[in-house]
Amino acid sequence: MTQPLAILTGATAGATESFVVVPFELVKIRLQDKSSKYTGMADVVKTIVRQEGPLALYNGLEATLWRHISWNAGYFGVIFKVRDLLPKAETSQGQITNDLISGSIGGTVGTMVNTPFDVVKSRIQSTTKVPGVIPKYNWTLPGVYTVFREEGFGALYKGFLPKVLRLGPGGGILLVVFTACMDFFRSIQ
């Protein structure tokens, strides 16, 4: 394993994950909108399909790809490098500590990289598509520029603190559990 390969495999995993999570993210965003009139998850799906068509369940796919690819590439690229910089663990407790540290740093960096894409993704998905009307937030990179131009750099990091408080330590826990599972599966071969 090399750092470029870690980044590539992380990005590939993020891209794959995006195709699975987009409809769920879309439903979540529509339900969380303070002006939402939906009665529940099924109502969101039924309304979107009826008013916008079945492919509308994938509104925000491009932004979700940017969000997941950047987080996973950042996460796996950073943990690879941080693990390399940390002293070699001589005990299982040392391995857990190293994984917590490198995973938490990776989760934090991944979140720093992907938050602007997440902000734009939420704006894209909270907009109901109307035939013949081009939404203000339609594509990710122009959306990032629009937010920056109209609201300033800080707006690209709205919600960053709770997100990094979840994904920073979550990245550490993820790596500890992943390593433990891999060690277990190797031991039973």
Rank of each mutant, 00 (worst) to 15 (best):
T2P: 10
T2M: 10
Q3C: 12
P4G: 09
P4W: 09
A6R: 09
L8H: 09
G10N: 02
T12I: 15
T12C: 15
F19W: 14
F19K: 09
F19L: 15
F24G: 08
E25P: 01
L26T: 01
V27N: 00
L31Y: 00
Q32T: 03
D33G: 02
K34F: 05
K34W: 04
S35C: 05
S36N: 00
M41A: 11
M41R: 05
D43W: 01
V44L: 00
K46D: 13
I48N: 00
V49N: 01
V49D: 02
V49Q: 04
R50T: 08
A56H: 01
L57F: 00
G60N: 05
G60W: 00
E62G: 12
T64Y: 09
L65I: 06
R67F: 15
H68D: 08
S70Q: 02
N72I: 03
A73C: 06
A73V: 07
G74C: 04
F76Y: 12
G77N: 02
F80R: 10
D84F: 04
P87E: 14
K88T: 14
E90L: 14
E90I: 08
T91A: 14
T91L: 12
S92N: 14
S92V: 13
Q93K: 15
Q95E: 15
N98G: 15
N98T: 15
I101Y: 02
G103D: 13
S104W: 09
S104E: 14
G107F: 03
V109E: 06
G110T: 13
G110F: 01
N114V: 01
N114P: 01
N114F: 02
D118F: 04
K121A: 07
S122Y: 07
R123G: 01
I124T: 07
Q125T: 06
S126Q: 10
T127D: 06
V130Q: 11
P131R: 15
Y137L: 08
N138P: 03
N138L: 06
T140D: 05
T140Q: 11
G143Y: 02
G143S: 05
Y145T: 13
T146C: 03
F148R: 15
Y157P: 07
Y157K: 10
G159P: 11
L161G: 02
K163C: 12
L165S: 12
L167Y: 07
G168V: 11
G168C: 14
V176P: 13
D183E: 14
D183G: 12
D183I: 12
F184D: 04
S187C: 10
I188V: 13
Q189L: 06
Q189I: 07
